[in-house]
């Protein structure tokens, strides 16, 4: 088991390095010259521009730059932002809590709503809950988050004046962004949970259990749910990652602090070090979630646990 985790970690590391290299390549191929956006090209002499390039290492060949970049990162040096010239790491770390809080709140909403609607809707197909589940499922995956965010502001801030439309101070400001973001995740999770519940309900072993006279409740919540959870957990893991990414838009709509805002700004300013830093952060969270998902399989499914132990 431990070994499996270790090897998972090793391959995760590879994936993180790969994603950083990927972003590096994208920016390497990018047309604009970052130096030109840093200085006034009309009033600065070509030598100064050349010097800056030298200073930033933009003149060196691709592989050398890439290696230096990874080298620096190993020593914990993520470089400095091209825009504020402040170190990237503290800049991002400072914003991480706000973004994680939003992601966590949205995920909580998504999971609770998703499972709470998904399970009963499969058990009692055609009922009221099933209807609600289908609506949440379809609208959740069909509505653009920025639109639902705007609608929420329109209703709860502009019209009813119940909730603040902006900012990141206090719990009240968290409600609408988390709802807007969580709704999308809830949509996917409801569909998933419902679908796999239905599938498992049709498996022969359920019929066997029923035939054995197990109470229906026990059948559904112990046996069926457990079996249906595996694909659901995978999807939940992916959804959390997507919600993390979704903060880019939601933080903008609600003027919240966070990594997403930093990223949106940095991308438009072609601020490579900051973009790299944020990608690194997201990749770590992503990989971390995947790891948790893997581990939870073992918790849910004894077969996997046993197999893992055997290795």
């Amino acid at each position: 088991m431990l070994q499996a985790i270790a090897s998972r970690l090793a391959s995760s590391l590879l994936v993180i390095v790969g994603s950083l290299a990927l972003v590096f390549c994208i920016f390497y191929l990018l047309p604009g010259d970052p130096v030109l956006s840093m200085v006034d090209p009309t009033s600065v002499s070509p030598e100064v521009i050349e010097n800056l390039r030298e200073q930033l290492g933009l003149n060196r060949p691709f592989h050398e730059r890439l290696l230096t970049y990874f080298g620096d990162m190993l020593t914990g040096d993520f470089g400095r932002s091209l825009v504020g010239s402040e170190p990237v790491l503290p800049k991002i770390l400072h914003q991480v809590p706000a973004t994680l809080l939003l992601t966590a709140a949205s995920s909580l909403i998504a999971i609770v709503v998703g499972v709470a609607l998904g399970v009963p809707s499969a058990v009692r197909k055609g009922g009221l809950i099933d209807f609600a589940a289908r609506i949440v499922g379809l609208f959740g995956i069909s509505m653009p988050t920025f639109w639902s965010g705007i609608l929420l502001i329109l209703i709860f801030s502009v019209q009813l004046k119940w909730l603040p439309a902006m900012g990141s101070d206090g719990w009240a400001t968290l409600v609408m962004p988390a709802l807007a973001l969580g709704f999308v995740g809830a949509g996917s999770i409801v569909r998933m949970v419902r679908g796999s519940m239905l599938e498992v309900l049709g498996e022969p072993f359920v019929t066997t259990l029923r035939a054995k006279g197990l109470r229906e409740r026990l059948v559904q919540y112990k046996h069926v749910l457990r079996n249906a959870l595996i694909p659901a957990v995978t999807l939940i893991g992916m959804q959390i990652g997507d919600m993390l990414a979704g903060t880019v838009i939601i933080e903008t709509v609600f003027s919240r602090q966070g990594v997403g805002r930093i990223l949106a700004d940095a991308i438009m300013a072609k601020d490579l070090p900051v973009v790299q830093g944020v990608v690194f952060f997201t990749a770590i969270v992503y990989v971390g979630i995947n790891l948790l998902v893997d581990l939870s399989y073992a918790a849910i499914d004894p077969r996997i646990r046993r197999r893992g132990a055997g290795q």
Binding site: V39, L52, S81, V83, R261, A269
Partner: peptide, 29 residues
């Protein structure tokens, strides 16, 4: 030279790489 850059809404400072240059950023936006 510089002032007129200013005018562009952002200033590209001489030799400073930090600057606000910034293109933009949503914020500037």
């Amino acid at each position: 030279g510089i002032i007129h850059k200013l005018a562009a809404g952002r200033v590209y400072p001489k030799r400073r790489f930090k600057l606000g240059c910034v293109l933009g950023a949503l914020a500037l936006a």
